[in-house]
Design a protein around this nucleic acid. Sequence first.
DNA 1: CTACTAAGTTAGACTAGGTCTAAAATCTTA
DNA 2: TAAGATTTTAGACCTAGTCTAACTTAGTAG
Lengths: 142, 142
Amino acid sequence: MKRLSTAAIIDLIRAQGLKLTPQRLAIVAYLQQCDHHPTADEVLEAVNGKFRMTSRATVYNTLHWLTANGWLAEIHQGGVARFDPNLEPHHHFVCRSCGRVEDVAYDAVAPQPQCTLPGRQVVESFEVTLRGLCATCAATTV
Amino acid sequence: MKRLSTAAIIDLIRAQGLKLTPQRLAIVAYLQQCDHHPTADEVLEAVNGKFRMTSRATVYNTLHWLTANGWLAEIHQGGVARFDPNLEPHHHFVCRSCGRVEDVAYDAVAPQPQCTLPGRQVVESFEVTLRGLCATCAATTV
DNA sequence: CTACTAAGTTAGACTAGGTCTAAAATCTTA
DNA sequence: TAAGATTTTAGACCTAGTCTAACTTAGTAG
């Protein structure tokens, strides 16, 4: 799975004439090893785990900057924003019981839909959301 | 396009032993002739257009009741809940410029994805979101 | 038609997620 | 090492949505 790398982010920060702050690096480090799609609050808590070092505003700033630069995708599920560090094109599976969001390989949802509409819309991308029960919930639900 | 009908809603209200209030009827009437996917606030404003008759809480109550009974679908785009009175299975097109949500015929996005995943998840449904520029924005954007 | 009462509506307090701001702190370059 | 622009910060603020307790009303029985 392709992911954001610290080196690449540092290069990008430098290239844009921005500052390399511990807060930014901590957020990137967390996202690198994150195996799900955290909300902004989850990032905030994770980064502040050992000791307070980052404010809410900084988390949003950094998350939005990473998103604007294509290092993160922002997805909305159930009205909450989640940030997806998986850079490969893929789709999502959402559990209707626990809300968990899992990645689904791009070609597991085969084949690619035809993307021309009758109107004058310009279709640039598409995404497929599968819904149902995740393995855990499927096992515990009667 | 299949839609909720006043007669059917009145029957359902009666069948559930609920009360037929002017507020409920006004909300249903608005949704019937609504050509897009309104937010709760849009419903509230539309219903209160001529004179104040409905509170925010009542709009949410009614919208959620209709959703629970399958007369409305709740969709989230950009973190806001929108309510979709189109009862036929279909997909959505979201304009990245103005946020407008348009319906896309179910079989315009052909063919149907295969819905089996490698894990133990149970896939119950899927939806496809197309993104791009709507006709209006495509015309005005350089 | 009247009165009763369960169901519904209301205003407004409250919550959560997110944005904004002005002041304080810090990275970078020279 | 100091200057100065960029960042961070706390906390006020905003918006969407929920909750509650008091009030109102639709439906019904007499």
